[in-house]
């Protein structure tokens, strides 16, 4: 396999599994680089920032350069500092939401798959309602009950996503449970917990991981949306969504304030989606089987 083979946009009709795999791992690498860039900014922001987040000494709407890499916003705060804390908030929002969605989603989904009859029906109906319930409304309710913090936003997003994950897990688990090997395990006296840990989870996790990666991207977007509306992390924590909202009025004169968070948001989401896409093939049991 040559470099040109991997990069050439026009593909011969027949692609060997090997070619496909290499292209997939290329997707994975590009995705990791893009998302990794943002993750690195987030990581560094934990230990070091160019300026304190509430430092307004830079003068209003200063252009890039001169002590401020990306310039300053309308209050005189350093934009690069804000972009860095924004990265951290974005990654936290993604991880937090996915963690909530995975924990609740997998538990509910597996439970519903195992419980046949009324319990399954009840859980499914509940999930359908939760999925139909607008995330924005849920977020507003949670913010009203608590306050506008990153935690509230993450809770709202995570809860909304857990319904989606639960529904997926339920279907995947049901499909696994229909196999003869589950019946064989049950006839040999294998307990429910061992069936879940030994058979169900290993068989659903490739699909699950890919979906959770997609959910991560969606969660980052949702958090940006919520904080754009003022339902996210409060100042001086600069979330990308709030940066976009604040820079909107001065976009024609000082576009960097909106472009910087916008571009990073796009990079992170595309990066994560590429990772999901790459994982799909790498983790796909069918591909793994073929490789062996």
């Amino acid at each position: 396999m040559t470099q040109a083979d991997v990069l050439s946009p026009v593909r011969p009709k027949k692609t060997s599994p090997g070619t496909r795999r290499n292209r997939r791992s290329a997707t994975l690498v590009v995705g990791c680089v893009l998302a990794g860039l943002v993750a690195l900014l987030a990581l560094v922001s934990l230990f070091w920032l160019p300026y304190p987040t509430d430092d307004t000494s830079g003068g209003r709407l200063a252009g890039p350069g001169g002590g401020h890499l990306l310039g300053t916003d309308k209050l005189g705060r350093d934009l690069f500092t804000q972009v860095m804390t924004g990265s951290r908030i974005a990654v936290e929002a993604g991880l937090g939401s996915v963690l909530i969605a995975a924990t609740i989603g997998v538990t509910l989904g597996v439970l519903a798959a195992f419980a046949q009859g009324w319990l399954d029906d009840t859980v499914s109906a509940f999930l359908d309602i939760l999925i139909a319930f607008p995330t924005l409304l849920l977020a507003m309710l949670i913010v009203a009950a608590r306050s506008a913090t990153l935690g509230s936003a993450v809770l709202a997003i995570g809860l909304a996503q857990s319904a989606v994950v639960a529904r997926l897990v339920r279907i995947l688990a049901k499909r696994v449970l229909a196999h003869d090997y589950i019946t064989a395990a049950r006839t040999s006296g294998t307990s429910w917990s061992r069936t879940v840990a030994g058979h169900v989870l290993p068989n659903i996790w490739p699909t699950l991981v890919v979906n959770l990666a997609l959910q991560f991207g969606l969660a980052v977007l949702a958090e940006a949306g919520l904080s754009y509306l003022g339902l996210g992390a409060p100042p001086p924590n600069a979330s990308w969504g709030r940066m976009l909202q604040e820079a909107q009025a001065t976009f024609t004169t000082a576009p960097v304030g909106a472009l910087a968070p916008g571009i990073l948001l796009v990079l992170l989401v595309i990066g994560v989606n590429l990772i999901a896409d790459g994982l799909r093939d790498t983790l796909d049991p069918a591909t793994r089987r073929r490789r062996a």
Partner: peptide, 22 residues
């Protein structure tokens, strides 16, 4: 659960689906 395995066990038609692929 107590009966299965101890009193009766089963071999299925399809050898491919009778074992967990992973």
């Amino acid at each position: 659960t107590a009966v299965r395995g101890r009193d009766a066990a089963v071999v299925f038609q399809e050898p491919l689906t009778a074992l967990d692929p992973l």
